[in-house]
Design a protein around this nucleic acid. Sequence first.
DNA 1: GGCACTAAAGCAACTATTTAGCGTTTAGGA
DNA 2: TCCTAAACGCTAAATAGTTGCTTTAGTGCC
Lengths: 193, 193
Amino acid sequence: MNDIAPPSPRATGPRPGGRSARVQAAIHQAVRELLAEGPRESVTVPAIATRAGVTPSTIYRRWGDLSQLLADVAVEQLRPEGAPVDTGTYRGDLALWLEQYRDEMSSAPGRTMLRDVLSVARAENTGKCLLYCTTQIDMIHERALARGERPLATAAVIDGIVAPMMYHLLFAAKTPSAADVSRWLDDLIERQG
Amino acid sequence: MNDIAPPSPRATGPRPGGRSARVQAAIHQAVRELLAEGPRESVTVPAIATRAGVTPSTIYRRWGDLSQLLADVAVEQLRPEGAPVDTGTYRGDLALWLEQYRDEMSSAPGRTMLRDVLSVARAENTGKCLLYCTTQIDMIHERALARGERPLATAAVIDGIVAPMMYHLLFAAKTPSAADVSRWLDDLIERQG
DNA sequence: GGCACTAAAGCAACTATTTAGCGTTTAGGA
DNA sequence: TCCTAAACGCTAAATAGTTGCTTTAGTGCC
């Protein structure tokens, strides 16, 4: 699972090799464990450092800040693991993927990760979220084209379904339901004509 | 609207009277000033306390946390000041209000306030954001009904325009443009038939 | 393989922030 | 005016965050 550093053009860049990678992995895992087992406020830099067998200064130097580390871990967790399931139709693929996405984001850990990602000023992490999402929807799109179907534009899916879903998740008291999602999807498909 | 605290059921209620209110106002103002004049990381609890002429422990006791105080101040700033401008038509009212909203939220301080509000776990603050927004759109809606126009459902405006606007603001690299907003508005009105 | 180079981690002393305990002030009500 | 308790001020102790310097160990070159 872990090949080490490619032998390429690196005059004086970062050093992703063995130890750094191990330390980063240990820290990420420590964060995940602490988040899973205790209340949020117990996830502190010294606690993470101890759990990971590392000194706090390492964390501060690499991430600068607890919130950035949390954002980093969160965006990592949010990365999709593979291609969306193939159900045989565009509509089916999209509906299933959306439902899974809704489910993941509505969960307590999902919401926490979202908050962590959003609370950091740097756009890098939020950009990755959008990228992951776009990529998945694009895959479904491509598959539909290959089948000879007429899929929606990815941007339309983002604006018409993902955006309201996230908006409700972030701002409304209650998380969006599966019915909400299919309603948005139906509207979009109907509008397409 | 009327008399103060009902007699009996206040065994252990809050105390909104004179001093508390003064202290809170001083602290809020100190936060706004510090946010306006310096970089974000210089806005610390001790700094706020000094500026407000208060001891840090007061802040920790009342808000528990810098992020909660920031969220509190932010949501206060985000509160609309009055009714939306009356341009004579539903479409005009809505377009103008949306543009102003977009402008405010896209600005650096607007984005900062949004982040502050979203990064706190308690749903109370985010709920207020949604409420403010809904209330404004509802006013425009009511005015349109009084004129005999046929306005969009408020929920449709939220899901079809506000939501994608916020989604782009939060997740995309570049903030949504005025053209994006009018496109979303046009789509919605056209769909209404 | 051995060597030089340097990014990254460790260590430790230091500063800043947060929390806790306890006395004092003052809003709210008789 | 007087009483009660919420809310604040103060201080000290605990915890978190920062920094300079030292040591470790990837990486490229011979």
